[in-house]
Design a protein around this nucleic acid. Structure first.
Length: 524
RNA sequence: GCGCCUCUAGCUCAACGGCAGAGCAACGGACUCUUAAUCCGCAGGUUCGGGGUUCAAAUCCCCGGAGGCGCACCA
């Protein structure tokens, strides 16, 4: 046996120092690589170490394991067992080893599964293949059978009689105390993050519950869940830049949807009076702690309803979800109270801008006055913007970020709301609102524009802006106009950002915390 | 896109112009009740990549990469 077997590597006979160089030269033509976390040679090293210990290896792990009980259930059922007591009941548990403490003729290991954790307690005198058990390491998966007992020191345990390795961990799962904190590693290798950091698991589990409860609540209100296309021949339904892709057989470009809105309203035309869709949207825009290129929304449409009905629905839905997920309608976000208990405040955009700035700005204010006010506050004013767009800019620059809410910001300018119905009391406004919470819009809703002639005119306006260089402006969707000509009843519509909502309930500030695999630039 | 910051062992971090180190993990061993166990031993490095300044660079400078935050963008 060589003195340093784990350093042995393929050698070209040139002796020690030169053995690596030829290999590097062979790689020189490839693009430079930066192994961020765990270079392949580490896996090789660890593999060699494991082999030396004579572990069985992955080739002999079984194809299945009959688990009779989850770890959480063990602690729930035998929580009352006294220290040193034996239950007399055998269980078979499975999970990942999160701690291993061999101690002479005894060995302890913490086994964690999806439901929780339970300790494995092994004895040389009672456990099959005890020596191998003592060599279990952080991250290995095992299945174990034995009696439920509580140790003398008071830890509920499975006293292992038989056990089997289900998978070996060749790579490390981070610092046992501090986990993995590097944000890049956490988002790129979410599987490691999830095992190492309970908060990461909690945030994603909460998101899952959020979507589930949301569906249940909508089903209870007789909403029908539907799925509409993600490949759109024309991007529509929102003001955003799309991703483009190509269909080979049709030899044409498609756009990944920026909103499902137009298709959903066509379903209302078709007779689905209450529809919703929870799905992924794609917007080809900047990324930030609050923006991921692909994100999930709830969008719903309710026939015979207007935007005030939708406000009531939003209050009810969001406060109900807070109750479901946090146990209260009055939560804490980033250390500040956030009370979703209905009713929420309703205020017009003009009122809120006046509160924030003292300016009597509204959609009827002369354009030049609005432009001057906006410029004073750092807005780069485009000459083509009308008073509506200027008011919106003013609102976003001065007001929105300071609204803690929840508050319904009502009555947006018609000019910036091409799919919303004109306000019944003011021809320059639209019946549109955004629920704003913690300085961010949570959604967007309106009394839907149902008049095909008006819609055509708005599309033409948008198309003109598109022609003039606004790549985010909409284009004319003839299919949608034809659908409207068949008759869309009065309808209230809503879109809510699921990721944003999950951030509030999970009390996190980065959208990536509630996305399982956030968009990242490739490493190499 | 712009600005500021970060990048060192598998993980978490020191070293801040003078021999690249620690804790944990891993690896070999001791231990019959561990809980961030303890003890003994061993090993592990392209200091993100490239270039420059210097007798000497992880450290200073330049270029590039990835990431974080802020701004812009995102009605």
């Amino acid at each position: 046996m060589p003195a340093h077997p784990r350093r042995a590597r393929p050698c070209d006979g040139r002796g020690d120092g030169g053995s690596r160089r030829p290999r590097r030269a062979a790689h020189r033509a490839r693009p430079p690589r930066r192994p961020v976390v765990d270079p392949p040679r580490t896996a090789r090293r660890v593999r060699t170490q494991r082999r030396r210990r004579g572990r069985p290896g992955m080739s002999v792990v079984p194809y299945r394991f009959e688990q009779t009980m989850a770890a959480g259930e063990v602690s729930a059922r035998w929580g009352g067992l006294g220290a040193g007591e034996e239950s007399g009941d055998d269980v078979a548990v499975a999970g990942r080893v999160m701690r291993s403490r061999p101690q002479g003729k005894l060995a302890f290991a913490e086994l964690r599964d999806a439901s929780g954790a339970v300790q494995l307690f092994a004895l040389r005198s009672a456990t099959r293949d005890f020596d191998a058990f003592t060599r279990l390491r952080l991250g290995d998966w095992v299945g174990a059978t034995g009696q439920v007992v509580r140790t003398r020191r008071g830890e509920l345990s499975v006293k292992v009689t038989d056990w089997v390795l289900l998978a070996e961990a060749r790579r490390s799962f981070g610092d046992k105390w501090r986990g993995v904190t590097d944000t890049e590693t956490r988002y790129r290798q979410r599987e490691v993050d999830l095992w190492a950091n309970p908060d990461s698991r909690r945030a994603l589990a909460l998101r899952s519950q959020l979507v589930r409860r949301m569906r249940e609540r909508l089903w209870a209100l007789d909403f029908v869940e539907v799925e509409t296309p993600i490949l759109h021949p024309i991007p529509g339904g929102a003001h955003a830049r799309p991703f483009v892709t190509h269909h080979r057989a049709l030899d044409m470009d498609f756009y990944l949807r920026i909103a499902p809105e137009l298709y959903l309203k066509r379903l209302v035309v078709g007779g689905f009076e209450r529809v919703f869709e929870i799905g992924r949207l794609f917007r080809n825009e900047g990324m930030s702690p609050r923006h991921n290129p692909e994100f999930t929304t709830l969008e719903l449409y309710q026939a015979y309803a207007d935007y005030t009905d939708i406000m009531a629905l939003v209050e009810d839905l969001v406060s109900g979800l807070a109750q479901d997920l946090c146990g209260t309608t009055s939560i804490t976000y980033q250390g500040r109270p956030l009370d979703f208990t209905p009713p929420w405040r309703r205020a017009t955009m003009a009122e809120l801008v006046a509160e924030a700035t003292g300016l009597g700005a509204n959609v009827h204010t002369p354009r030049e006055t609005l432009a001057a006010w906006a410029r004073e506050r750092g807005v780069q004013v485009d000459e083509r913007w009308g008073p509506g767009k200027l008011l919106l800019e003013l609102y976003e620059k001065t007001t929105e970020g300071n609204l803690w809410g929840p508050v319904f910001v009502c009555d947006y300018p018609k000019e910036v709301s091409p799919l919303a119905r004109v306000h019944r009391d003011d021809p320059l406004l639209a019946e549109r609102f955004e629920p704003v919470v913690a300085g961010r819009e949570l959604g967007n809703a309106f009394s839907e524009l149902v008049d095909p002639d008006d819609q055509r005119a708005r599309f033409e306006e948008q198309a003109a802006q598109h022609e003039a260089g606004d790549e985010e402006a909409m284009v004319i969707d003839a299919d949608y106009l034809r659908a409207l000509e068949h008759g869309l009843p009065p309808t209230g519509g809503l879109g809510i950002g699921i990721d944003r909502l999950a951030m509030l309930f999970a009390d996190v500030t980065n959208i990536r915390e509630v996305i399982s695999f956030p968009t990242m630039r490739p490493e190499a």
